[in-house]
């Protein structure tokens, strides 16, 4: 019987326990690659670097408190690195964002599906809320979770209209 690929190794459906140490720079870099891949997969014309500070804020916030996502982040970093190393980046991105659909916790039974449900899905939500929505609708100005700046700027925070 052949050994399953790293990302197909079975895991229980429950969240992975966090390690004692914080995320390493290497892990954060791998996770950033996973985040940037969202724009690549959906052909979204957006300067992803502009989203990095909010993404890091999310990562830091979810690496403390309950539940602590560091165990899942570590796993996702390893999975993405293994996928890229083995399949190349385009195929790795397709593997995660196209081929692996996980919408319920009970479906997260392998390293890959854990990475998708607990990490990549949240990265998608973060991507959209922090500005990615504009890549779908360029004229859109605001979205739930987006910090658009004071409403007393010269321009309104949302697309507006006037009553005729």
């Amino acid at each position: 019987m052949s050994t399953p690929a790293f990302w197909d190794e079975p895991l229980p459906a429950t969240m992975l326990d966090p390690p004692a140490s914080p995320l390493s720079n290497q892990e954060i870099d791998a996770l950033w690659g996973l985040f940037k891949a969202i724009a690549i997969h959906w052909s979204l014309d957006i300067e992803v670097e502009l989203l990095r500070s909010r993404w890091l804020d999310m990562l830091e916030a979810r690496s403390a408190g309950q539940p602590d996502f560091r165990g899942e982040y570590g796993n996702a970093a390893q999975v993405y690195t293994a996928l890229v190393t083995t399949l190349g980046e385009p195929a790795a991105i397709a593997k995660i964002y196209q081929d692996t659909i996980v919408t319920k916790p009970e479906q997260a039974l392998t390293r890959l599906t854990h990475a998708k449900f607990y990490v990549a899905n949240d990265f998608i939500r973060c991507f959209v809320a922090t500005g990615g929505f504009r890549a779908f609708v360029p004229k859109a100005r605001n979205y739930t979770g987006f910090m658009g700046g004071s409403r007393f700027r010269a321009w309104p925070p949302v697309r507006t209209g006037t009553k005729s």
């Binding site: 959906w42 052909s43 659909i101 919408t103 998608i124 939500r125 779908f136």
Partner: peptide, 19 residues
């Protein structure tokens, strides 16, 4: 809800059509 459409695996073309 773009994020839900993406999590469900919709392609860019499908999402544009829905939008």
């Amino acid at each position: 809800e773009f994020e839900n459409l993406m999590i469900q695996g919709k392609t860019r073309a499908q999402i544009d059509q829905i939008a």
